[in-house]
Design a protein around this nucleic acid. Structure first.
Ligand SMILES: NC(=O)c1ccc[n+]([C@@H]2O[C@H](COP(=O)([O-])OP(=O)(O)OC[C@H]3O[C@@H](n4cnc5c(N)ncnc54)[C@H](O)[C@@H]3O)[C@@H](O)[C@H]2O)c1
Ligand SMILES: NC(=O)c1ccc[n+]([C@@H]2O[C@H](COP(=O)([O-])OP(=O)(O)OC[C@H]3O[C@@H](n4cnc5c(N)ncnc54)[C@H](O)[C@@H]3O)[C@@H](O)[C@H]2O)c1
Lengths: 217, 217
DNA sequence: ACAGTATTGTTATTTATTTAACAATAATGA
DNA sequence: TCATTATTGTTAAATAAATAACAATACTGT
């Protein structure tokens, strides 16, 4: 799924990602009392060009005024209408280790429509406890709880060796989106959103560029 | 910097990222005693097509044999020659909170050429202690320590409000790559590698796709 | 010996994404 | 009044990346 239709226009996935970032920048602006903003101002905050911003906004059919630029409040609302899900989406974390907990803390409460409603861990000392008021279940209960709590998105932070089996269970249970942070690539059906991020790959790219830059001297 | 020359051929940055992933998959294969591998096998492990793999390998001038495919050991060596930096690269973490520590634990020791040689935190209880045998310095000493220890890459996990000031200090001190995990976008000169990752943006994309898929029904 | 098969390596094509170009517009002020 | 300026919205062009196509090759089995 690389594009999506909104108002009968095709929207690239990359635009969706940028809209999320624009909104974040805009929210900070409103806190500062700003009411209007120009495309080049948005561009300066995020890492994009003013043209890119205008093009993205064109795609979602949002218009600014020539002299004042874009109305921040309205723009936030329009982006939210696109990105957000009225009823909200339920999320669960699988693997409540150091990394899972760090993500939990960071994510918890940041977006009102995105709710962490369960955690899963195989460690018997964790099962049955609450972390940030959210109950920790045994992985045996994945199917049951995912259905009962209508969980749609999974954050996968189990050990790499467990990734494949857990991912399979998730898909079978009806999960529709997985953020896979284990270093094991997983496969999912077409109708399941998948994102895989690994800091080591990024670090290797960084090191490569450092090397390249030094050689250029 | 979107492309890089190797053997006088232009290599897209994306290829570099994939090479890192290929190598990881290959290392696992060697552990299993495999000596040769076909492009479609590599493709099946990672999320790419066989054509993509062959094209990437063509770009770095690596040849396989028609009947056996690619020699895994050789391929790992060639990729390592491209990605790795003989003398190694020194890395530091800025912000030793939950997230910083989780990344530390994950990263520490995974790549012999990429060494975490220092951590920095403003919390006086952390300054002067060792975490995983690595000393924690006060942010006041950034310039001094970065130069003394020849630190090239920074993992940025300070609170979002501190991101801009710390990033500026890093660049001034001579850091050449930053992995920015704070939700605050930062700006760096052209000769500094920058990667910004934020799980909330990813989560919002995931939620968006879940929503889209449901509407399609 | 040779048709059939599976694979690589590379060029050509297509698709996706970004960037550039510019007309339209509205305010400013000489 | 009218040139100047700064901006938007949109089309056109350029660039980047992925995919397809296919010749070349080497092995298999008959
Ligand atoms: N992508 C990144 O940048 C990145 C960064 C850090 C860690 N990681 C990865 O994230 C994962 C977690 O890292 P960590 O440091 O928190 O490790 P950890 O060992 O602290 O946590 C793993 C947790 O998963 C639990 N677990 C094991 N099997 C399970 C199962 N079948 N179902 C549910 N829970 C299960 C364990 O009990 C443990 O609590 C690892 O795969 C690690 O490689 C990725
Ligand atoms: N990108 C992601 O997906 C993601 C996930 C989790 C957290 N985060 C971000 O990572 C950062 C850290 O998160 P956390 O949960 O570890 O928070 P935390 O509060 O536990 O850790 C922050 C640490 O930074 C230290 N610090 C403060 N000012 C500093 C300075 N000037 N120099 C050095 N250290 C300083 C604090 O003492 C603390 O130890 C935050 O910005 C958070 O938003 C991002």
């Amino acid at each position: 799924m690389a594009k999506v239709k909104i108002h009968s226009k095709e929207i690239p996935v990359k635009t969706i990602g940028r809209l999320s970032q624009y909104r974040r920048a805009l929210l900070i602006c409103t806190l500062k009392g700003k009411t209007h903003i120009f495309s080049h101002e948005i561009a300066a905050i995020q890492h994009v060009t003013a043209v890119q911003v205008r093009r993205d906004l064109m795609l979602i059919g949002f218009n600014g005024s020539l002299k004042q630029g874009y109305n921040i409040r309205n723009l936030i609302d329009v982006i939210s209408e696109i990105l957000d899900y009225e009823e909200g989406v339920n999320v669960a974390i699988f693997g409540l280790g150091n990394f899972g907990r760090a993500l939990f803390n960071y994510f918890y409460g940041k977006r009102s429509q995105l709710r962490i409603v369960a955690t899963f861990d195989s460690n018997t000392e964790k099962i049955g406890t609450e972390y940030n008021k959210v109950y920790c279940y045994s992985p045996y209960r994945v199917e049951e709880i995912v259905k009962k709590k209508n969980i749609k998105i999974a954050i996968l932070t189990v050990p790499p060796k467990r990734a494949l089996e857990v991912a399979k269970k998730l898909v079978d249970a009806g999960i529709k989106g997985i953020l896979n942070y284990t270093s094991t690539p997983i496969d999912v059906p077409d109708d399941v959103f998948l994102d895989e991020y690994d800091m080591i790959t990024t670090m290797e790219k960084a090191a490569f560029f450092v090397k390249m830059n030094e050689l250029k001297l």
